[in-house]
């Protein structure tokens, strides 16, 4: 017997749709109804939950990438220029 999708899944967004909306869903900027539809799809689709979790992880790791700072000599140069232009006594 052929495995057919339940009717309620057919009426909702496909995995392809959900994957395409992942960034907006994670940033919470989808229209309310679309947001609910994506949420319902995720509740029933383990593969899309994995995809969404991986995208969220990428965002979180990107935020934690190492910071970059100026070299000591550049910092000194900038401080001197700042002091020269904005010294309280000037």
């Amino acid at each position: 017997m052929k495995d057919h999708r339940p009717q309620w899944i057919q009426s909702g967004p496909s995995c392809r749709n959900v994957a395409g909306l992942a960034s907006e869903y994670l940033d919470d900027c989808l229209p309310v109804l679309t947001n609910v539809r994506v949420g319902l799809h995720l509740a029933s689709c383990a593969d899309c939950r994995i995809y969404m979790k991986q995208m969220a992880l990428v965002c979180e790791v990107a935020a934690g990438l190492p910071k970059q700072y100026p070299s000591p000599i550049t910092r000194l140069r900038l401080r001197q220029h700042f002091a020269c232009c904005h010294s309280p006594s000037s």
Binding site: R5, C15, R16, A19, G20, D47, Y51, V61
Partner: peptide, 30 residues
């Protein structure tokens, strides 16, 4: 498209659903 379209079913009742879904990154946290 952002996600490679070939990862999804192209035809049939399950068109648009994962054909090659992402595999879990075991116990990965940030």
């Amino acid at each position: 498209e952002a996600v490679d379209p070939s990862r999804f079913q192209q035809t049939g009742d399950w068109a648009g659903h994962w054909a090659f879904p992402p595999q879990p990154w075991d116990d990965q946290t940030p």
